[in-house]
Design a protein around this nucleic acid. Sequence first.
DNA 1: CGCTGTCTTGAAACTGCTCAACGCGTGTGG
DNA 2: CCACACGCGTTGAGCAGTTTCAAGACAGCG
Lengths: 253, 253
Amino acid sequence: MTTGLKTRDTFRLTSAAPSEVAVPAFGGLPGALAAQGAVVRTRRGQSLALAIDGSEAVFVVRAGALMLRVTLPPGLRQVVAILYPGDVFRAAFAPPAASAHLSAVSSGEVLRFRWTAFADLAASDPEIARYYEDAVARQTARQAIHMAAVGRFDCRQRVATFLVELALRTGMRAPCGGLTFEMPLNRTDMADYLGLNADTLSRTMSRLRASGLLSHPERHRALVRDFEALAALTPAAQSLTALCGEAALSKHG
Amino acid sequence: MTTGLKTRDTFRLTSAAPSEVAVPAFGGLPGALAAQGAVVRTRRGQSLALAIDGSEAVFVVRAGALMLRVTLPPGLRQVVAILYPGDVFRAAFAPPAASAHLSAVSSGEVLRFRWTAFADLAASDPEIARYYEDAVARQTARQAIHMAAVGRFDCRQRVATFLVELALRTGMRAPCGGLTFEMPLNRTDMADYLGLNADTLSRTMSRLRASGLLSHPERHRALVRDFEALAALTPAAQSLTALCGEAALSKHG
DNA sequence: CGCTGTCTTGAAACTGCTCAACGCGTGTGG
DNA sequence: CCACACGCGTTGAGCAGTTTCAAGACAGCG
């Protein structure tokens, strides 16, 4: 909030995404933020405390990715969200009484603040306020798509959706002409993210591999030969490209 | 953001909800907001445009409830969120290319602003900024629970979760000793919210009715004899009471 | 080399979905 | 006033897709 400027995303209503894509505010992290936050380097699996000696924490992801997992009484686990560079997470986003757990899915770097300090920064610097607001809005919109995927897609659609998401985020053009990207989550976490059984997920990916859409040159890395074909498998393809930007697709690795 | 004050919610980490519940900031709507916003009276089914002649809108729910529905290409519909009094909705929360649609599920009243104007208000009034931030955080936490429900619960658990949610929100002690509340959504919308088939939902509710937990004294209204028993059916009961407050449970209708 | 954790795969069981029929309340026109 | 169509909810039967459970493959590591 704070600034009267228009959202960087060209604002759209319903309807198909135009080719001019809303580029998320990566790189655009306000300098004042980086100067004030505590830098935390993350390693895969590392968990991040939601409180800093009793007071609420806020995180801003600079590199790598985080995930928020909740666990409900009978051991039902759900990975609620994956946070990519540019995303923000306030501890109050975690639901109470649900064993909320924030952890890194890959090595990277996050900025950490006390919420009180962060709010003061935002109050005094419109750029920070606007950055935070836009990040929250972007993430909320992404969550909506994820919700629809988990609520309505069959297993192949869900997996395709996730792969497209990863490809758009971290994909690089491979020398051989396809698209490669990290698969930082293990099968269980991926299944928990997609609301699937780990066995079902494994089967589904095997089928994608068998159909030639996907291959695993090495563990924790995927190669997609024909991105268009993969995107055609998920009803959310348009929304995802609009949300993540297609910048990644042109980067060469 | 803006204010350095601590969130009204006593901040908690993981673990079970204590009996002292985080009361959502109803009634606590800053006066300055009400003075500035355009009052919109809603009727059931009425849809709310996400843009005010081309610029982004924000809504603050004062009474009644709204729902956000997305529809993906093959006609897959998902009700992503239900917004109750005190909740806020910024148009940028709606995902692009997903036929996002915001509509009223019951008659009520919402305040409408242009986002630019709202942001300016928040920048100048810390109380408004804090109200908005806390509302967004509360809603995000609720979404996390909903995500877990859609991703991991079986149909009975999902329906129980929804009923508990409604009971906590709008439930009143009935003269006969149970709890009554409105059921503003029709079967289809409820099913879309829960990620279920409408037929399955109907069956599930019939079973609940047959087991004596639920009854329909009149259309669009439910009566729960034994709230504890209903709450015992959902793994999210603790989280829901922590998020919605139990104030409603003591109100007499 | 053998251990462990992760991933894969198969067969059976089950849950929820599809499709179609029916009941009911409401609105409309004869 | 009745007949009819319509929207909405309910219900049954059969089916499809997912989960469950258990066994096996594979890589990493002491």
